[in-house]
Simulated assay, not measured.
Amino acid sequence: MPAPVLTPSSTGVALPQVTLAAITSIAPEATARAVALSMAGIAFGEVLWISDLAPPPSLAGRVRWEPIAPLTSRDAYSRFMLRDLAGLVGTDHVLCVQWDGHVIDPARWDPAFLDFDYIGAVWPQFRDGAVVGNGGFSLRSRRLLQACAALPGCGPEAEDVFICRTMRSRLERDHAIRFAPPELAARFAYERERGTAPAFGFHGVFNLVELVSDREAAGLVAQLPMRSLARNELREIGWWALRHGRLRLAAEVARRWRRWL
């Protein structure tokens, strides 16, 4: 393992035991933006760019590039997260980010996050005990990564659902994996459900567009490959943009919708 890549910390948040990792084969510029924003104010033990695409110039000298085969589908991404990520992470934990999920408030970091093997935003669509999941912005222990590498394949199921719901009981029983409680997860991140207090990070393009200007939101959506956004996501973003007078974004969503059809 090469020497750690430490990033400047303006807020004094030092996380030498955490690797920041982006795993992607799409939207390199938008992903680089998410990585840079996550690095601002936090000193990570290492920052990994895991992709078949070279990191954009904006990240030159700030990340370690781990070239991989192209991830051409959600299934391929899930297989990589389950089977291969463990071999690339040398720290105790890894913070996984995507182009539409990153740190938004470093001051909201809580050392208690590291007491658990998996923490992500709460899934409000589930009503049983296994409601903490969302892998798009998630903190995972190396113990969890190694345990997941020994699991059977997840088939068409998304890797976060597979880990946090399908295999949760097995991971808890056989590997003593600890999933964060919903109350702590709500302070870590939000996706479909926002807590009453600000969170450390977020996931979801429908949240991202609320955090940036109309011009930037339209630009981010424009650079995404076709069908990287589901129809329901496009529809949701389009209606939100119209209701809030985000005309550039609404026009870009309409353009993509016409191309989709």
Rank of each mutant, 00 (worst) to 15 (best):
M1C: 06
A3H: 10
P4A: 12
V5L: 15
T7N: 12
P8S: 14
V13N: 04
V13C: 09
V13S: 04
L20I: 11
A21T: 08
A21W: 04
P28D: 09
T31H: 05
A32K: 05
S38C: 07
A40V: 03
A40R: 13
E46Q: 15
E46R: 06
V47F: 02
V47A: 12
L48W: 02
L48C: 05
I50Y: 00
S51F: 05
A60D: 14
P67T: 11
L71W: 05
R74K: 12
A76Y: 01
Y77M: 14
S78Y: 02
F80I: 07
D84S: 15
L88H: 15
L88F: 11
G90P: 03
H93L: 09
V94E: 00
V94M: 03
C96F: 04
V97T: 13
V97N: 06
W99I: 03
D100F: 06
H102F: 10
H102K: 04
D105S: 11
P106W: 03
R108M: 13
R108I: 00
P111S: 06
A112E: 13
A112I: 01
F113Q: 02
D117V: 05
I119D: 03
G120S: 09
P124R: 08
F126V: 12
F126M: 10
R127G: 09
D128H: 12
V131Q: 09
V131I: 15
N134M: 08
F137V: 10
S141W: 07
S141G: 13
S141P: 10
L145W: 03
Q146F: 02
A147F: 08
A150I: 00
P152D: 14
P152H: 12
P152F: 12
G153R: 10
E159P: 08
F162C: 03
F162P: 01
C164P: 00
C164H: 00
M167W: 12
M167I: 07
R168G: 05
S169V: 13
R170W: 11
L171P: 03
L171F: 09
R173C: 11
R173I: 08
H175L: 04
A176H: 15
A176D: 15
R178G: 02
F179C: 04
F179Q: 04
F179G: 01
E183M: 07
E183I: 04
A186T: 08
R187Y: 01
A189C: 06
Y190I: 02
Y190E: 10
E193V: 12
T196E: 15
A197M: 11
F202N: 02
F202P: 00
H203S: 01
G204Q: 03
N207G: 08
V212N: 07
A218Q: 08
A222N: 06
L224E: 09
P225T: 08
M226R: 10
S228C: 12
L229F: 14
N232R: 14
R235Q: 13
E236V: 09
G245N: 11
R246E: 08
R246Y: 11
L249N: 05
A251L: 13
V253M: 13
R255M: 05
W257H: 06
